[in-house]
Each structure stands twice: as structure tokens, then as C-alpha cells.
Simulated scan of single mutants.
Amino acid sequence: MAKYRKKPVVIEAYQTNVELDIETLEGVLHASVGDYIITGVNGERYPCKPDIFEKTYELVN
């Protein structure tokens, strides 16, 4: 079995302060207060829990 690493891709994201239902490629997903709303490389949007976001992404200067 081979190992793979994610390519370094820059995304846009913000942390929401309200609950949202977001239309994603997988259907409607619920975002809780504090979740990050990510806009992917193809313009798709999806929520991400803060702990996962902080393990996966770092701020680009």
C-alpha cells in the first residue's frame, strides 16, 4: 500500500458565528457555531469542525 500527502492548496475559510445549513457536493450539511466554512478549489463549500481545521490547515501570510 502506498502513502500519499495532500498537495499544498490554498483555500478560503471563515469561522461562522451562526448555525447554517450548507449545500455541498454530498448534500446539505449543518454547520454549528464555531465551525469553519471552507470554499474549496472548485468553489464548493463545506463545513469543518475547528479541531479538524486546525490539524489540517495553517494561515497563509
Rank of each mutant, 00 (worst) to 15 (best):
E19P: 01
L20Q: 06
R45D: 02
T24F: 14
G40A: 07
T24H: 14
N42Q: 15
G27Y: 00
V33Y: 02
E44A: 15
E26C: 04
N42I: 11
E26S: 10
T39F: 05
I37A: 00
H30V: 01
G27T: 01
E26D: 06
Y14P: 03
Q15Y: 05
G27F: 00
T24Y: 14
E12K: 11
V18H: 11
A31M: 10
Y14W: 13
D21K: 13
P47K: 09
E23C: 04
V28E: 03
L25S: 10
E19D: 04
G34E: 07
D35Y: 14
T39R: 15
T24C: 11
N42V: 13
E23T: 07
Y46C: 04
I11G: 04
G40W: 07
V18S: 12
G43Y: 10
A31T: 04
N42M: 15
Y46D: 02
P47L: 10
Y46R: 08
L20G: 01
A13P: 00
G43F: 07
I37Y: 02
D21T: 09
T39C: 04
E26I: 02
D35R: 13
L29S: 06
A13D: 00
Y14I: 05
G40N: 04
E44K: 15
V41T: 13
I37S: 00
G27A: 05
I37K: 05
I22H: 05
E12I: 03
G27V: 00
T39N: 03
I22G: 05
N42R: 15
I22Q: 06
E26F: 07
L20R: 06
G34D: 08
Y36S: 01
G40C: 04
Q15M: 12
D35T: 03
S32E: 13
H30Q: 07
E44C: 12
L20E: 02
N17L: 13
H30F: 05
N42E: 14
I38Y: 05
A13W: 01
T16I: 09
T24L: 13
T39K: 14
L25T: 05
Y14R: 14
E23D: 11
A31R: 10
G27N: 02
H30M: 04
N17Q: 13
I37C: 01
A31D: 02
G43L: 10
T16V: 13
D21P: 00
G43R: 11
A31C: 09
I22V: 13
I11K: 11
L25P: 01
T24N: 09
E44M: 15
V33N: 03
L29R: 11
S32M: 12
A31K: 08
N17A: 08
I37T: 01
I37G: 00
Y14A: 14
V41H: 14
G34R: 10
E19C: 08
L29Q: 13
V18I: 15
I11N: 04
G43H: 07
I22E: 05
Y36W: 12
V33E: 04
G43V: 08
V33G: 02
V33C: 01
V28K: 08
I38W: 07
Y14S: 12
V33L: 03
Y14F: 15
N42D: 14
E26W: 04
E23R: 10
S32L: 12
N42A: 15
I22F: 06
V18K: 14
N17H: 14
T24A: 14
V33Q: 03
Y36I: 03
G34W: 07
P47C: 06
D35H: 13
V18T: 15
I38H: 06
D21E: 12
N17I: 09
E12H: 07
E23K: 11
Y14V: 06
Y36M: 02
A31H: 09
